[in-house]
Design a binder for these strands. Structure first.
Lengths: 207, 207
DNA sequence: CGACCTCCTTGACGACTGTCAAGACTTCGC
DNA sequence: GCGAAGTCTTGACAGTCGTCAAGGAGGTCG
């Protein structure tokens, strides 16, 4: 309010703490999953004590929904670089496959958490709104890849965004499970699978 | 041992009780999910008391793995009738799609439990062996459908069993989530999706 | 200095969990 | 009909959980 003003407005400070808390909570959640990650364990892996959660969040549920929302908002831009920088269809496929593998190897805990939460939402209504919203944003992300791929190939996508996402998500989930189970060549496997699948997503140009 | 002999051998009796227990446990598990289904709740929804579980099962984990194994062994034959009775490719696709819809509508709790457990196996090593085994049997089930379809169409499958299963499982999971979230026309949606997808799984006959 | 406000810790609460031991009830061989 | 084996119930155990109230620490402003 005065000349210099606060570095950060008080409301922002509050919001920033929420982000910090959510950030360290995500580490624990990715390690233990939704059900076994207690608030005490989450707090232990942060720089705070277990009581502070209820100062910034109403519920365990509110914390967790906030966490996953936060992670996925950064996550949905993951392939945008691939889309922006590819100039030939096969180049895009390779870059996309590389990025998929990188995601599985480097962010496996986060993604198993996502699948955990999506499964939980089948039982718990309170999770559904957030899950559906995130799912949609992932579908959009995949669609940007597919439609760019079609454009570069001079063709049209042969499938709806929903189906394209469903198919690729199925493959990704399978690969993630395989990777976590220690199966070898799962990374090469997903690469081959994507190389084989992507051309099938296209149809002749109709316009 | 005598002339008439026992109706069921003692070992069978024990095994039969396990099946009975698992059967009523499955109802509770399908309703509450893996994490929130306590042994007391499971026992409450059966004709037994909560202590009996440890007479027939070592663990909660052993009970649950037994349950899902039991369910899935009946489940993996679900589409065999479709495979056996179809004589034309389009007929198979329709019958397959119908069966998928029927499965979603009538057995949603069982299948969300399956996805719950598969997600949990990404965190809990002890679940992985059973999950991988069941997953493989589902892959085989799907492959019987796809290869029969190819045969009827006079073509070859364009994909490996693994990929075919991954794709269809992705679609199925998406449809299940949509159905549980009360989305309308999800049943018509999956029908259309299958009709659109199946032909894409085929390639020209090479032999 | 003292009153206030924000942020965070501590400790406790009631409820719920998986597990298991002790014993009651049932069934069956003899 | 008796004893033993098998089957099931009951009650308790140690532990964990989410939640929240009481209060301390640190800063700001009157």
């Amino acid at each position: 309010m005065t000349s210099v003003a606060a570095r950060t407005a008080p409301a922002d400070k509050h919001e920033e703490r929420r982000r910090e808390l959510a950030d360290s909570a995500l580490r624990t959640l990715g390690e233990l999953g939704y059900a076994r990650a207690s608030l005490r364990e989450i707090a232990n892996n942060s720089e705070f004590s277990h009581g502070v959660v209820h100062y910034y969040f109403k519920d365990k549920l509110e914390l967790i929904v906030f966490c996953v929302r936060q992670y996925k908002t950064t996550c949905v831009t993951r392939y945008d670089g691939v889309v922006a920088e590819s100039t030939r269809p096969d180049e895009l496929v390779e870059a996309f496959a590389d990025k998929l593998v990188e995601t599985i190897v480097e962010e496996a805990p986060m993604h198993r958490l996502w699948y955990d939460l999506r499964s939980q939402s089948m039982f718990e209504e309170k999770l559904r709104e957030a899950v559906l919203q995130i799912d949609k944003s992932l579908e959009d992300m995949i669609w940007r890849v597919v439609s760019k791929y079609a454009e570069l190939a001079g063709a049209e996508p042969a499938l709806s965004p929903e189906v394209a996402y469903g198919l690729l998500d199925g493959l990704f989930q399978q690969a993630l499970l395989g990777y976590l189970c220690g199966k070898e060549d799962v990374t090469d496997g997903i690469r081959d699978q994507v190389r084989g699948l992507m051309p099938m997503l296209l149809a002749e140009a109709t316009a």
